Amino acid sequence: MPDTTSTADAMFAALTPVVEGIAATFGRSCEVVLHDYRDQERSVVAVAGSVTGRQAGDAMSEIGLRVLAAGDDARTEVGYVTRAQDGRVLKCTTVPLRDADGTLIGALCINIDVSAIDRATGVLADLLGLSPAEKPVASTNFSGDLDQVVESLIERAERAHAVPVASLGREERLGLVRELNDAGVFALRGAPGRLAGRLGISRTALYNDLAELKKDAS
């Protein structure tokens, strides 16, 4: 039986030069990030390009949280569009990586800045007298700090409800916990402890919320 740890280490070592090769092929508008989910706080093991400013040793983004939470159900996502916090439009591909046993251990992510193309499309539409429908593009926090990534999700909920999360009623809080669970936050080690204080409740209350959500889903 193969040693899954050594197999995983060998996979990441083999993919590191691939990261450089992909980024060099697509040029300065491309960034390639290799994640090792075995270390969630420092999942980035290799980066080529600087589209999102990621560095080796950074934590995963909101996208990584979602992939981690999907676990066995995680699938390759090709060409989805998101927006960086500074407003740039990115076209991204995420490829889940698995060890010899099929367990999710990381991801290879390709981010291409298509902002210039997006602007050019708008100019051409104006020249041709067209009015293309604007499709809302969700933003993604690419911070290298996992606490900041989780905080951005909570702040998004605060803006949606127009009140601090600690002031939410029971039903509203359950809705927020559901959103955070769907976003993959609870796949993180120590997530309940991080979030209970931020939500102004005890860990026991947060576990009760999660148990209720599981009961509703069954």
Rank of each mutant, 00 (worst) to 15 (best):
P136A: 13
V149D: 11
T94Y: 02
G122D: 11
S115D: 15
A125V: 05
A157F: 04
S131R: 12
D118K: 12
V95Q: 06
P132W: 01
A157I: 05
I154Y: 04
G102I: 08
D126Q: 14
S131I: 01
L153G: 07
D118N: 15
Q148M: 05
P96V: 01
G106N: 07
Q85H: 12
G144F: 09
R119Q: 11
E158T: 03
V123E: 13
T82G: 10
G106Q: 08
F142D: 02
A160P: 00
L124S: 13
E155H: 11
E134P: 00
L90G: 06
I154A: 01
D99I: 04
R159F: 11
F142H: 13
K91P: 00
A100P: 04
G87T: 13
V114C: 03
A84P: 02
V114S: 02
D147A: 15
G102Q: 04
V150K: 11
A160M: 04
R156I: 01
V114N: 04
T93L: 03
V137Y: 00
A84L: 03
L146N: 08
A133N: 01
A138F: 00
V123I: 15
L146H: 08
Q85L: 15
R88I: 07
V150T: 11
N141D: 13
N141V: 05
P132N: 00
S115N: 11
A125F: 07
T82N: 15
T140A: 08
G122L: 01
A125K: 04
